[in-house]
Nucleic acid binder design. Structure first.
Length: 193
DNA sequence: TCCGAGATTCACT
DNA sequence: GTGAATCTCGGAG
């Protein structure tokens, strides 16, 4: 079942936790890709390490000020893209960074996008930039609405329940490093309906 | 297996 | 001009 706008009617921190175990689906021209989200990070407007800290609105973080359910893609380190899901209510520039997924469908497409030749899937999608490459996400995806009627990319709930959600400090940032706003899960149960 | 350096484009100051 | 929510690869252990 598809995730609706009500899902985002919550705090950014809660949404970060709730996103663990949800499915992100992308209907590309090559075929459908599905993956379980197993790692996220929360970024709020009051967070020094967020692009939207202090409510400062720029061309780059514009999308973070939009309604919940939009995709915020930014470019970093000269080579990589990272994808966030905007969660803030109106005029709250908050988002959740997708750090890692577990592929469950379209592995061939992912491998092709990643130019992957190894037999094992280990290390295929365990990082925000790897996730973007896997799905073929680039800056053209910035500002897409996941809640559209017929989106190319959207969220689903396929009843994957994380056995345990861990939390820890965030990665790759230079400010507010003490905040434990990174959430991840190692194992999932599939709930039968 | 683990660690450290290099890569390289964009937006803001 | 500078620094960034990172990844990959090479070399050492």
């Amino acid at each position: 079942m598809k995730i609706t706008k009500e899902f985002f009617n919550d705090t950014t921190l809660n949404i970060s936790k709730k996103l663990i175990g949800k499915i992100i689906t992308f209907e590309s021209s090559e075929g459908v890709i599905k993956g379980i989200i197993n790692e996220t990070e929360a970024y709020t407007q009051d967070d020094e390490s967020s692009h939207s800290f202090g409510g400062k609105r720029t061309k780059k973080n514009e999308v973070m000020f939009w309604d919940a359910g939009y995709l915020y893609v930014y470019f970093t380190y000269g080579m990589y893209y990272c994808a966030n899901i905007v969660t803030g209510q109106k005029d709250r520039a908050e988002a959740v960074l997708i750090r890692s997924i577990i592929p469950i469908e379209g592995e061939d497409i992912i491998k092709k996008n990643r130019n992957w030749t190894k037999k094992t899937l280990k290390g295929l999608c365990d990082g925000p930039a790897k996730f973007c490459i896997s799905y073929g996400i680039d800056k053209n995806f910035n500002g897409l609405n996941l809640l559209d009627k017929n989106p190319k990319i959207y969220l689903e709930d396929l009843n994957y329940i994380p056995k345990k959600i861990h939390n820890s400090t965030r990665i790759g940032i230079s400010k507010a490093q003490d905040l434990e706003w990174r959430y991840y899960a190692l194992e999932f149960d599939k709930k039968e309906k």
